[in-house]
Amino acid sequence: MSKPRFAMYWAAACGGCEIAVLNIDEKVLELDAHFDVAFWPAAMDVKYKDVEAMEDQSILVTLFNGSIRTDENEHLARLLRRKSKLLVAFGSCANEGCIPGLANLSPREQIFERAYTSPSTENPDRIRPQPACQVAEGTLTLPPLQPVVRTLDQVVEVDYHVPGCPPESHQIAAVLDVLIAVVKGEAQLPPKGAVLGAGNSTVCDECPRKRDVKRIDKLARIQELPPLATDVCLLEQGLMCAGPATRSGCNSRCPNVGAPCIGCYGAAPDVLDQGARLMTAIASVVEAQEPEDIDRVLDGLPDPAGTFYRFGLAHSLLRANRAALAEKP
């Protein structure tokens, strides 16, 4: 009997998810042992037309990382959906937009303006990338940017979600073990829509730091604070930590080494909007008698959108800047 097909694809993302998969070390050999790797552009040379030629549903599982930013991303999302039995949104970008999703704060024109003509860019001729460009050899094309970044499940139906930026290697290995067990007939598939490779609580659940009743009277960036106690909740020490609103599963890696959780595992179970949750939670415990007290605490947060919605903007209730949402593709 031939091995079931496996695919992995990299849309609008940094590539970290690909590295994370390779970080599972020799476990990757088990992947090869149980699957026929049919499509994985980062690892092997297969053309889109080869995928297009495959029969529908002929890939058992596709790990799709990256958000949907360009027409090409969308094309591949739809193509892989058609060809795969199980489509897995893999990593933060595919699930909630992640850092690329923060571009949803601006319409495309502003993004191009910022990227190609702001003072930080050396571009005296104000050249901008074009969807099509004539050169001596013929026409070169680039996939056009869509008005906003979307998550995979805003474009196609998704079977499973693996959160994280990137997903932790031990969690990837665990997900792989489940898939292999299913292939071997030793396990049932998890219910559709399940979140795999993560916990069911929040980062605080795994964080060993001691915590008390919260009352926040200041927030500051780590370099502005005195040396922090190593065993006390970072939030209580004035550091904006997203741990309380972020799904568990990473073994609280960042707080363990004194860095605040930045929220990469996304919203906790049953939470619709991680940023809104975190914001309401923090707002609830700000120690303020007067409006000025609130301002003072908020002044410690130079980038609220980027702090609360660092990972989740594209999948939040607001999703994007209204002007950007209203744009024609």
Binding site: T202, C204, R211, D212, V213, C233, P244, V285
Partner: peptide, 13 residues
């Protein structure tokens, strides 16, 4: 309880 992480944000509210 399964979802509560014991972060104690709500404790003083």
């Amino acid at each position: 309880e399964a979802q509560c992480s014991g972060c104690r944000l709500c404790n003083g509210l």
